[in-house]
Structure formats: structure tokens, C-alpha cells
Design a protein around this nucleic acid. Sequence first.
DNA 1: GATTTTTTGATTTACGTACATCAAAATTGG
DNA 2: CCAATTTTGATGTACGTAAATCAAAAAATC
Lengths: 341, 341
Amino acid sequence: MRPTVHDIAAAAGVSLATVDRVLNRRPGVRHVTREKVETAIRELGYIRDVAAANLAKGRTYPLVFILPASDNSFMHGLNGEIRQAILRSAAERTDICTIEVPAFDPAALVAVLEELSQGKPCGVAMVATDAPEVRATVDRLVHAGFPIVTLVSDLTGSLRHHYAGVDNIAAGRTAARLLGRFLGPRKGEIAVLAGSMLVRDHRERLEGFTAVMAEEFPDLAILPVLEGRDDPEIAHMLVADALARNAGIVGVYSLGAGNRGLIRALKEKAVDRTLTVIAHELTTHTRAALIDNTIDAILNQDAGHEVRSAIRVLKAKADGLPMIDAQERIRLDIFLKDNLP
Amino acid sequence: MRPTVHDIAAAAGVSLATVDRVLNRRPGVRHVTREKVETAIRELGYIRDVAAANLAKGRTYPLVFILPASDNSFMHGLNGEIRQAILRSAAERTDICTIEVPAFDPAALVAVLEELSQGKPCGVAMVATDAPEVRATVDRLVHAGFPIVTLVSDLTGSLRHHYAGVDNIAAGRTAARLLGRFLGPRKGEIAVLAGSMLVRDHRERLEGFTAVMAEEFPDLAILPVLEGRDDPEIAHMLVADALARNAGIVGVYSLGAGNRGLIRALKEKAVDRTLTVIAHELTTHTRAALIDNTIDAILNQDAGHEVRSAIRVLKAKADGLPMIDAQERIRLDIFLKDNLP
DNA sequence: GATTTTTTGATTTACGTACATCAAAATTGG
DNA sequence: CCAATTTTGATGTACGTAAATCAAAAAATC
């Protein structure tokens, strides 16, 4: 049988109350006594029964998700996954709420974080906007003892406990290699459609993409990036225009949202030529386009995994428990038409 | 606050003992009374606190993993992941043991299953050997109330509660498309290295591979399958021989284990020609080969995820709880040198 | 050495559920 | 209607931990 607090008390030759004081860092225990108890804990291999402790404490985990108010499929999907998680709240003892902040607005994000820190949340998951003031606020909150994880978009250099999202540089590199290999000996130009170069994920994807292209596929030239602001209409216009202007385009990399417009443009303008197209995020639209060969590969991050991972990590941090690193790594999914879920 | 058994009792106008009898399917409750309680449960949205229940019951989850005694990297990795899970036993209330059975031996597997069913396990995870007698035994145990999940290799058509593994037909199809697209306009022959055509996973991968090859890449001809018995030495010999004999080989698909031998053969015999190679399972060897361009892509199933998923599912089934389907889908990982973990 | 302060012990209640016991009530059979 | 049976209630203990209270002991202070 697993040792209990009673066993620790007996082994250390102290009372239950003292063991409790040590375990829960309560004051009023002499240094030597604390040592005795800690030794007993180590020697018996005592592990606190978190379930019993939570029961006794009546503990719940109030968690906050801070999301940008962006109107695209991916954010809708992410929201949906959070709602799923909320449905599981009862069983998981979580109490989840979401807060929307204007996208790309560091000041607004900082304001929300400040306000939250007054309250009681035992964990915050946020889609980070990459700015020094955000980093400073996050660091301060972490120091104050708030578990914080970044979601989808990281805040490198900050003290956030964990990042639940994909490695976007690797994603860009992977896209480049896939595109380069799919094109084989063909030469020509590559159009890149992004949302905005102000977004860190997009910058990183582009960075990885251009790096591999330059290193390994010198016959393919990257055209100036089209910034579609993750808007289908703008994306459509930009891509249609680029295709009309430039007959040398042999491939397209869409690293942001707004793929609905991209797909429409491809179907209108590229019926005759054989373009190789790689896009991000699996949605109804990109899925259909993959199946009808308009798109050749989709890179995806699983929003459900990201949300569940963020929750697991925040709970573990709140309890001071370790996490299973391999389990929390968010993988870059590569979908061809053959391995769609 | 979440409703408790007390609330149910009050709402239904019965005593706590009666609620308990209903909840735990104990006898001695009149039909009408049972209905009243069940109505109250539904109306209050009562959810049993599994943690408290487990505490009261002193419940642990005795789980058994049945694995084939195969000596290859993948099975070693799987074993390692199970050992990791055993280390987490205390925190997860599991009590995991593994049983090795001779590989490809339905009778031995059936014998082990029969013996287990005498015992107390509340769940069995097994790498299935595909045979009618195994199916029959599994169905019988499932009927008798044992949660059973298949791991890595499925037992289609049986009543197993879940399959924690990848879709091998999709894996084969994906390999074919990757190989076909990577080769582009090149024509030639494709060598396929398998472990054994007696193993269901390998048959399925080959099936998916040949299907897509035939449909979409008619210029690539598949050579007769080389059966390397998942043994590096045999694999080396077979591949070296095939490469020496046949100058028309432009691609290799290795769908089983023994990749160490394959890689050695490729380095010896294929320095001059540009082969495109796709292999299964990420190991130290395949990883190194991917990085030095001997292999172009690796298809992988994450053994850690499979083990953790199997445990989660078995626990949920033992408690009669639902599972999160999306969470338990084992994905086919595609690794290029850019997105290695 | 007496007093104050700090540390420790003993004990109790609580969390939400499981399970057992025994008595009381309701139902059924004759 | 009485006896036998089934159903229900009341109550207590247990699981492992948290948290509180109050008394007792030890240590520190003067």
C-alpha cells in the first residue's frame, strides 16, 4: 500500500498536524522537525493523493483563456475546443472562462492581465501578442505565482511556464521542403500568402520557409509576400492578381488564414497550369481543396490538443506537479489527401 | 455548486441509502423509486465525483499489457513507454503489468487471455495477432465485461472497445503519395521492404501503398516485396542484392522494422544514384539517416501516445465514462528533416 | 526561575462517495 | 388480517487529506 500522512507521522515521530504543516508549508515548525518529516517523506516515497487533497480542499481550478477577437476559422475552432473543455469542467474540477481582447493590441492584453492578477484564477492561457510590455507583465505575474501558458503564439524570452503550440519555424521549413520536393526539377516562382507580417507566427513560418528555400531549392524564387490580413476577400484579390500578372508561378505557400479566398482564386485562374500548393490549417474549405487536388498538402496544428494540453499543464503547475513533456509537445500535422482524419 | 448525492436524495424524496442503491445498481429498489431517483439525477444534472468514489472504494486500476516478444526498436520503445507509465502508477491509481507472448502465435495469445480472465484485471491492452480464435476469445471477454483495447495492431471485426494505433492503410497510401510526388516525372521501379506479409499492419500498409501507386503513379512499378523479417541483417542482404541487380530502382519504401540494415545497404550501394526513400518508425538510426539525406521521410506512430491513450481509454471504460474521441485518435506522424521532435 | 513566545500534539470536522448493518415501513401472499 | 417478504430509512465507518482549535510542551527572553 501507498504510504499516507499517518505513516509519515509515525516514521518521523511527529504528529499528524506537524506533517500537515510541513506538507502545506504552514508556519510554526522548527527547522530540525521539518527536516525529519521531509526525510520520512523521501524515505517512504510518500506521494500526496491529489484526488483526496482536492476533495478535502473542495478545490476547483479557475482558468482563464485570453483570445484575440479574430474572425477566422482557426480561432473559431479554438473557441469551439474551449467550449468542449468547459463541458467537461464538472468532471475535471475546472472553471474555465474566456476573455476576448482586440488582436495585435499589446496594451489591451496587458490591461486584461493586470486586471486578472487582482482576481483569483489559478492559471492563465493566452494567445500572446509579441511585445515587450506583454513580456514584462507576464514575467511579473509568473513571479507572483500565477501559472501562465502561451497558446498558439508564443512569447519567447518570457518566463511563461509552457507554450502549447507548434514550432512555426519548423512549420515553415517543412512547407519549403515539401514544396521543393513536390516541384522536383521545375523552376519558377513561389507566391507566399500571409496574414500579416506583424504576427509572430507568420513571421516565423516565413523565416523557416525562406531559409530552406534558399539553402536547398535555389531554382525557386520567392515573390514578395502577399499580406491578406487573414481575410478571404483580400486573399482572393491578391492571389488572383499575382497569378494573372506572373505566368512563372509554379507554387503557392499560404501560411495564414483566409484560405477560402485563395482556393477560389486558384480554381478560377489556375485550371490550366499545374500549381503546387501548400496551406496551413485544416478547415472544411482546405479539406475539400485537398481532396479535389487544388491543394497538395496541409500543415495543421490541432486546436483541441492545444487546449487540452494547456489545461493539463496549468492544473499540474497549480498543484506543483510535473508534466509529461512528450505528451505536451504539440506536433505539426502534415495532411495529404490520404491521411485525413 | 455541483449537486451531491444528498441533493439527489432530497430532490427525489428518498434516503441516501436508496440513492446509493440506484447509483451502484444494488438490488432492493422498487421500479418506481428507481425512476424517481433517476429523474432527480437527470434534472439536477448530477455527475458522480469519480475522485471521491475512487477514494472511498480504494480503487486501483489493474491493467495488463500483452506484447509480442519481438526484438526490434519499436517494441523496445513501446516497452519503455509502458515502463514510464508504470512509474506514474501511484499518481494515476494504475497497477500495470506486462506479459510477453510469442509473436504471431494465436494459440499462445488465446491461452494468456483465458488465464487473465480468471484474474482480476480491470482492463487489457494487447498487440493483437489477427486470427479467428483470438477474435472469438476477445469477443467473449468483452461480453463478460472486460475492457479490452488493441494496441499498434488491431483486431478488426472484434468487439474490442478501442484501437490505439494508426490507420495502416492510410499510412501506406500516404507513403505512396509522398514517394510519387517526390519522384515527380521520374520513371522506374520501387523496392518495398516489409517485415512479413503475415503481419496485418504490414499487409495493410502494402495494400494502401500499391493502391495509390496504381491509381496515381503508373510510371512507377512496384517490385516483388522483400520480406526482411524485421531483421537488420536480412534487410541489408535483401536490399543490397536488389540494388545490385536492378539499376532501375528509383525509390524504396520500408514499411517494417530492421531499418538499420536498409540504411547500411543504401549507404554502400546507392552513393551514386539518387534514391528516394520512405521508411516507418522514428528511431535513432532512421533519425540519423533522415538528417544525412539517406532517407527522405519517416512515417511514425508515437508509442508514448499509444500507451497513454490505451490507459486512459481502459480507465474510462472501467468507470463507464465517455472518452474524448479526438484525443484518442493516434495520428500518423510524417517527419521530414525539418520537423523532427 | 518566571514569563513570554514558539513549536508540537491531540482531536475534530469536513470533502463526496461507498458500503454495511439493523430497524422500520410497505408490499405481497395466503 | 396475519405472516412472510421486499423495499426503504437511519446511521455509522471508511478512504486520504485539509484545516481549525485548544492544550501541552519546549524553547527563548529577561
